[in-house]
């Protein structure tokens, strides 16, 4: 029924005739990839960061296998702090609707953002608050969403709910939090992200990498190797971390500026 309610527009008619464009839909003007801050520290830390995060994860891998719930819970805070440090040091904050950006009035997102970010003004301290807010927003909104997606992909419903929830929390801290930090509530950019049309940069690349990695993380689960680490959700989290690092690296370098073409 809500299907009907949703339809307010005349529909384009199949391949040939989609001549009608919805007025409120965001303009398809190509947005540019995110550029990391132009400071020496940013350039170094952006490459150091994945190493730190991965070593933190693999340092606790054994414990994760033995007791996923406790270890993943304990791991959330360090991951959050590292991610906050990363976005504060390396990424340009979103220009709108966060308290800090009210202090430094920014014109429109994306394009204008980049130049401002390039200058690197705002200060580390000023960017910490939006970073923390992003983290909070992500944990509250993206974690439940990712949990639902994990369940839709076949995660158990009646058991291991905490494991699934924590898996989603780690994934959202890795993938979504930097996106929130750089895009804020910019509807257009989020539309691009959700439809996978955003230009690839290290933030979007890392997000895609996390998802693909988590997907691939499911591959070893059915194998009859009888290893402890095959249990839910260890492989998914591991895949997400590794996919995140690879995606971030490729997104920031080789694939930068490319677009996923679903059309």
């Amino acid at each position: 029924m809500n299907r009907h309610a949703l339809i307010t527009e005349k529909k384009g008619a199949g391949p040939e005739k989609s001549d009608q464009k919805a007025p409120p839909s965001p303009a398809p003007s190509p947005s540019a990839p995110i550029t990391t801050l132009d400071s020496g520290l940013a350039r170094i830390y952006t490459h150091l960061h994945p190493l730190l995060v991965l070593s933190l994860f693999f340092f606790r891998f054994q414990a994760t296998v033995e007791d996923p719930v406790t270890t993943l819970t304990n791991g959330l805070a360090p991951l959050g702090i590292l991610q906050i440090i990363y976005v504060v040091l390396c990424l340009p904050a979103t220009g709108s609707s966060t308290p800090s950006s009210a202090a430094k009035p920014t014109p429109k997102p994306s394009r204008g953002k980049k130049t401002q970010a390039g200058k690197g003004d705002g200060g580390v301290a000023g960017r910490t608050v939006p970073a923390m807010l992003s983290h909070l927003l992500t944990t509250l909104l993206a974690t439940p969403l990712l949990t639902i997606i994990l369940i839709l992909f076949g995660a158990p419903v009646t058991s291991k709910l905490w494991e699934t929830l924590l898996c989603a929390a780690h994934m959202s801290a890795l993938a979504i939090m930097p996106l929130v930090y750089v895009h804020g509530v910019d509807e257009g950019r989020w539309w691009e992200v959700a439809s996978l049309m955003s230009p690839v940069d290290e933030v979007f690349g890392a997000a895609i990498g996390t998802m693909v990695g988590a997907w691939a993380g499911a591959v070893p689960i059915p194998l009859d190797w009888d290893r402890e680490w095959q249990k839910w959700p260890v492989t998914i989290v591991t895949g997400a971390y590794m996919g995140w690092a690879v995606g971030k690296l490729l997104g920031g370098t080789l694939l930068r500026g490319k677009r996923i073409d679903l059309g």
Binding site: R3, I7, T8, E9, G12, K21, W191, A194, S195, G263
Partner: peptide, 17 residues
Amino acid sequence: ASSIGQQSLTNRALGCY
């Protein structure tokens, strides 16, 4: 994702739903 990316609002809504 592809449905979200549709320009036409009708298509977008139908596709997403």
